[in-house]
Design a protein around this nucleic acid. Structure first.
Lengths: 259, 259
DNA sequence: AACTGTGAAGTGTTTCACAGCG
DNA sequence: CGCTGTGAAACACTTCACAGTT
């Protein structure tokens, strides 16, 4: 979705897998903790444990960055912190605007981990004129009217949307028009953005629903009899291939989830 | 990747892929919106657009649930809402506790999408005695001492951790000991949980770092010359250089990690 | 001896493309 | 004809297992 293809001309294409990129911050956090304890080196096994992954995956991930370890020894903590930071672009300053200073926006503004990496809250923006000027986390809230000006003046390229769902797309459009090219969306809506703009979303309700799915599986083993309400409309259709062939061609090995 | 093999006797093995499960809430939201507009049926193409995925993926996803569409026509909205809700376990009531009622916890307690699905905030818990009794989102905050009692009395199986990082593991241990088997973690820490307990994490700082990575790519195409500080220690090593496919569409990386 | 780096195999996910049904 | 449902191909990611290095 969002990102669309980026048909890069393959400038020597480093090509770090997306899954690896998503784990780099995890490694970085673990490494930072080690660094604070002045641990000089760490093995893939130890670091993997601290980051909650397995060591093969970690080594594979690092192999995309380069050969930064020493066989028989492990990885130099400081050096790796630097390399990962650089890879993630955290050696530079990223001004960020947060739009929508309700409960959540305020929480985000106060969030420490925010500033701790290269991120700097450049501005807090809210549509409520009554909020204008009020300081949140030490930063005065500004009115939406200022949005374009702020973004241009500060060279903001990352925006955080913490507005109600109804306002999100509109805010998004304005952010993008003003030059923002990466958006972190907390509103429960699918955002439409032009090619070249990245959107990541964080959705509490979705996370809970996924947990509920697994939770349900744990509880009800056999009893398929569901206690909920009855299907609303339409005739009930049969439930997919009942006992028959269907999936596992050869060695069964049923998928992740059992039933 | 959930719980590796789950031994289970393969009761007709439904086996819905994790990636599909993660998208069901998205479909459900889009369908709910259609339902509110009294749209009777929808094609895979339309629904996919509303959910921000492509139609082939959507059809494949639905095929894991069963044959719920009508060829030449599309899907019955109400019927599909029900089927997905049931699959996700939302036709039942899920009491949830939120631990850590700071800025973020309060935001979560107030979050509407919470209650809108089967989730019910059974209790708000905080370690600060000064907060005890204070109502947040209409619910009085209770002290951590009550944690075990609340969970057992209300049969809570899902816990949300919104405490500072330092307290998270301890809270997690208590939640698990009291009977919680699914945890949504907002604290920037890796939680250790016993086998059978699901943890999903939401980490603002990680999301931003991933955006920064892509942002950096957009900006500096060729100029590998980084303006940041110089590497701290150790000799620089060469850069690997895999030549190959690069980046693809955004794909969300699921994060269930059992243990 | 200890540990990294990585091909190769295994597993999961997406996309294609079209048969099949209403 | 239109649209779903799905094998098969393509792609992505993870894990294995061991060669290679210090």
């Amino acid at each position: 979705m969002a990102t669309g293809r980026t048909h890069r001309p393959a400038t020597r294409s480093r090509g770090i897998p997306e899954a690896t990129v998503a784990r780099l911050p995890l490694y970085l956090r673990a490494l930072t903790a080690l660094s604070e304890r002045s641990v000089p080196t760490v093995s893939s096994e130890e670091l993997a444990a601290a980051a909650g992954v397995n060591s093969a995956k970690l080594r594979k991930d690092f192999s995309y960055l380069g050969s930064y370890g020493t066989r028989g020894v492990g990885y130099d903590v400081e050096y790796l912190v630097y390399q990962i930071s650089r890879e993630l672009g955290l050696t530079q300053d990223w001004p960020v605007v947060i739009v929508g200073i309700g409960n959540l926006g305020a929480a985000l503004a106060n969030y420490g981990g925010f500033a701790s990496r290269g991120f700097r809250v450049a501005a807090l923006i809210d549509a409520d004129p009554g909020m204008a000027g009020k300081p949140v986390a030490g930063i005065p809230v500004q009115h939406t009217d200022e949005l374009e000006k702020i973004i241009q003046d500060d060279g903001v390229s990352i925006g955080v949307i913490a507005t109600p769902a109804g306002a999100a797309q509109q805010v998004c459009d304005r952010l993008v028009a003003a030059g923002v090219t990466s958006i972190l969306n907390f509103a429960p809506t699918v955002l439409n953005v032009p090619e070249g703009v990245d959107v990541r979303k964080v959705d509490l309700s979705i996370e809970l629903q996924i947990l509920a799915f697994h939770e349900q599986r744990k509880a009800g083993e056999e009893a398929a009899g569901d206690a909920g309400v009855a299907p609303p409309v339409a005739a009930r259709k049969q439930q997919h291939a009942t006992g028959s062939a269907e999936q596992g061609p050869d060695g069964d090995v049923p998928a992740v989830m059992p039933a």
